[in-house]
Each structure stands twice: as structure tokens, then as C-alpha cells.
Design a binder for these strands. Structure first.
Lengths: 211, 211
DNA sequence: CGAATGACGAAATATGAAAAACGTCACCCG
DNA sequence: CGGGTGACGTTTTTCATATTTCGTCATTCG
């Protein structure tokens, strides 16, 4: 409901820079505390009073930086997704040909999802909430990732590595085909059930679709 | 917990056939009533007393045929999955080359999932329960389907239509790659979000992975 | 004057008793 | 004797209420 990135109005230009900086630092401190508490006690079991107490401030003060508890959750999700995006960007713009990079990217994504699910259930709880409620941050993240993948596909086509098709469509198809390895819900349900092929084989299969 | 297919002991061989037949008819009647009521009022809103009243029998009598309400649900799921399997079997053993049959099969599956989700929310509720609790019937159904797909892949390889690889692995990869179109949870979440490519394109992409 | 807070109404959630539903069993009936 | 049932103990769900938590605002503080 409320907007996540509410910017304070900037009445004067002279001190606004410093003011904005100190504000940003408070935001970061709150997110750090929230992340730690959420991971320890779980999202639903942690209330804003807990976060405020942990920081030695009043609950009301939290609301000067975040419109709601859900906003904190979303900002945290944004931060985590940003980290994932950063990693993906490095992998996808790293060394190797297009196939190598895409393969590494997907398997990395899979690995990350798997580990989060197994060892950090509290984080997984937050992920599930985010997906169920179809937050825009998730959608935006997927779009960002798709942009990266599209670029790699484009390079692969230019290098003669992939066949010549619409890079956007091809990238989207590739991501759909590997969704079983990247989507948390899929990973959660499909890992347990008996599968014949390995993640590596699925990636190879999807890569072949590009060629 | 309880077993779904509890068979009555067969003390004598002469009348056991008829006895078993009349028993089977009761099972079917119960399932028919349950299906109608579940679809109308929803699974959680319907109790066994409702089903019994609908059939003009006592609730206790239901338990002579099913170990629990969940067993009815599972048997119903089995019956629906059987119908889906039947359809898939016809499509996959129908006319056309391997690609045509696989394409038709996946798009058909997608269509079915989509319609169920949109127009029969009560059924979708039951599907979600079945998936969340990871019922063996679902797993068995997927295995059955995979067997069918494997056979088509094998034929495609024999006809020189697909490249020569392990049919089982290839079929499993193909199903993973098209999971975004067949898995109810995926369809539910991914349809709404803005996608660049169409279902048809995803299928073509996956088919290309076989070639 | 802006940063921060205690007090407060609204909304969500925990609690616990009452009701309903589940599932079992001794018993009845054709 | 097998098909069927009413009565009954146990578990789950419902629902009203008490408590917590959320989020706002007038007021205080530096």
C-alpha cells in the first residue's frame, strides 16, 4: 500500500546532501537490525518494537524511515535481490563464451536457491511471502535478470554461437525452460521428487534450445 | 496416513466377484457425490456427513469404503489424474511425428491447467492441497506421464527426428523445461507477470533441445 | 526547526471455550 | 454372516474476546 522509497522533501540545497546521507545511514542500520532479527526469530515473530529496541530507539522513529513493517521487508528483499543481481551480472559479464556464462549463471542461481531453502528457512519464509503476494520488486528483479540474459544471448548470436533469432524471446524462453532450477517454489517441490536428470543436464538441454 | 486402496478380504471365491463389483459401484457413487459437492462447496466446506446425506446413507458407512476423508480426496485426485493421463496417452500416441505430438501434449496440458485454475477454483484448491502435501499420486502421475513422453522421444530418435541420446534423460529434461507451462503453481504465478514469449514459443524452444 | 518520542486508536493476532467434524465400535437387521 | 447404523470418544474448527502489534500525531527535546 505505502510507497517504499519515500524521499524526504528537500527544502534547502545546502545541507540537504548531509541530511540525506545521515538519513540513508539510519535506513541501513534499521535494515541491518531487521535482517538479523528476521533471520533469527522469523519475519512474523519480529515486530517493529523489537527492531527499535535493538537499535535503542523508539518504535515511532522507525516510521520516519519506513512507511510500514512490510516496507522494511520489501527493502530487505530489494537489498538481497540486488546482491543476487550483482552476482549474476558478474557471472554473465565474466569470461567464457555465451554458453559457459549462461550455464554458470543458472547453476549458481540454483545453488543459491537450494542453500537458502535448506540452511536459512527463515529467509525462505520471507521469500515465499514475497512471491505469494507478487511484489513488484520480484518482477523488477526478473526483468533485470532477463535484460542481462538477453544481452548474453545477443552476444552469443553475434558470435555465431547461437542461431539467429529474436534475443528477447530466446532469453525469455531460456529462463522459462530453466525456471525449474531457479524458482524457489519449483526447487522446493521438485528436488524431493525422484528426478532422472541432473541440473547440469537440464541446463545443457536449455542451452541446446538456443543453438 | 491410511491406505487408499484397502481391499476387502476375500473369504470365498464364488461370490467374491459380485461382492467386489457392488463394492466398486459404491466407491464410484461416493466419489461422484464427493466430486459434485467438493466442486460446489469446496473441499474444506464439505464434510463426510454431507456426502453421506447426499447418498442417503450414514456417515459411518462411508468409512467402510474409505479410510478417511483425505482418502476420498486422494481417490478423486487419482480419478482426475487418470482422466488427464488418458487424454495425454491419446495425444501422445496419436497421429503426427514426435514433435507434433509433444507440442500438442504440452499445450493441451497448459490449456487444461489454465482453465481449471480460472473457471474451477474449487478444484484448484484441491490441487494445491495435493501438491503442498506431496501426495504419492502426484508423483506416480508424473512418472506415468514421463513414461509416455519417454516413449515418444524414443520414437523421435528412432525416426531420426531427434538427436541420439538417452531417451529417459531427454524426456525428463523436456518435462523440466516445460514445467513452467504444466505445473499449476508455476502457471498460477507466471501467467500474471509480464512475459515476452508465448507458450507456443516455449514449447518450440524445448523441442529444439531434443534435436 | 527538525529529530525524536510517548500516548493513543485501529488492525491484527493469540487465547480458550464451545461446537462441529472426524473416525471407531458394539450392535442391529435382512 | 455381511452390510449397515446410531452412539460415542477424540481431534479439529469456529468464534467471541483479550492482548498484542501496527501505525499516527500532538508534543517534547536538543
Amino acid at each position: 500500500m505505502k510507497n517504499v522509497t519515500r524521499k524526504s522533501k528537500v527544502p534547502a540545497m545546502d545541507a540537504s546532501g548531509a541530511s540525506e546521507a545521515v538519513r540513508q545511514e539510519n535506513v541501513t542500520r534499521i535494515l541491518d537490525a531487521a535482517e538479523r532479527l528476521f533471520k533469527h526469530y522469523g519475519y512474523t515473530k519480529t515486530n517493529v518494537a523489537d527492531i527499535a529496541r535493538d537499535l535503542g530507539m523508539s518504535p515511532a522513529n522507525i516510521y520516519r524511515f519506513f512507511g510500514s513493517k512490510a516496507d522494511i521487508h520489501q527493502a530487505l528483499a530489494q537489498r538481497m535481490l540486488d546482491a543476487g543481481y550483482q552476482l549474476a551480472a558478474e557471472t554473465l559479464s565474466g569470461p567464457g563464451n555465451a554458453s559457459d556464462r549462461l550455464r554458470k549463471h543458472i547453476l549458481q542461481q540454483f545453488q543459491m536457491t537450494l542453500e537458502t531453502m535448506i540452511s536459512e528457512q527463515k529467509v525462505h519464509e520471507m521469500v515465499v511471502i514475497a512471491i505469494e503476494q507478487q511484489w513488484p520488486v520480484i518482477d523488477a528483479h526478473l526483468r533485470r535478470l532477463r535484460t542481462l540474459v538477453t544481452e548474453v544471448v545477443r552476444e552469443g548470436i553475434a558470435a555465431g554461437e547461437f542461431r539467429d533469432t529474436d534475443p528477447e524471446v530466446a532469453a525469455d524462453c531460456f529462463m522459462s525452460a530453466t525456471a525449474a532450477l531457479c524458482h524457489p517454489q519449483m526447487v522446493a517441490t521438485c528436488v524431493s521428487e525422484f528426478k532422472i536428470c541432473t541440473p547440469e543436464q537440464v541446463v545443457e538441454f536449455a542451452l541446446r534450445g538456443l543453438k
